[in-house]
Computed example of a mutant assay.
Amino acid sequence: MWGDYNEMHDGYGFGWFAMLVLLLVLVGLAVALLVVFLRSPGRPSGRDSAGSSPGATTGSSEAALILRRRFAAGEIDEDEFRRRMAALSEPA
Rank of each mutant, 00 (worst) to 15 (best):
V27H: 05
E90R: 13
F71V: 00
M8T: 15
T57G: 08
G46N: 06
R84A: 09
F14I: 15
A32Y: 14
F81D: 03
R68E: 12
R84Y: 05
D48C: 10
F37D: 08
G13D: 15
P91E: 01
L38D: 09
E7M: 13
V31T: 11
G15Y: 15
P91S: 00
A64G: 05
A86H: 04
F71C: 01
A63T: 06
R83T: 08
A87I: 01
R39C: 11
A32Q: 12
Y12Q: 15
G59F: 06
G46V: 02
P91K: 01
A86V: 02
G3C: 05
R47G: 00
F17T: 12
M85L: 14
W16H: 11
A87Q: 10
I66C: 01
G3H: 10
G42L: 03
G74A: 02
P54N: 08
L26P: 10
R82L: 14
L38F: 12
G59R: 10
E90N: 07
E78F: 08
L24R: 03
V27K: 09
L34R: 14
M8G: 06
S61W: 05
V27G: 09
T57P: 00
S89H: 07
A73G: 01
F17E: 14
V31W: 13
D4N: 13
E75M: 04
A73V: 00
A86P: 00
S52Y: 04
V35A: 12
W16Y: 12
S52M: 06
P41R: 02
R82E: 15
V21W: 09
N6C: 09
G28A: 06
S61M: 11
D77C: 03
L23Q: 04
G28N: 03
E7W: 12
A18Q: 14
A87H: 03
G42E: 06
R70N: 05
L88V: 02
G46A: 06
M19T: 13
R70G: 02
D10P: 04
L20D: 05
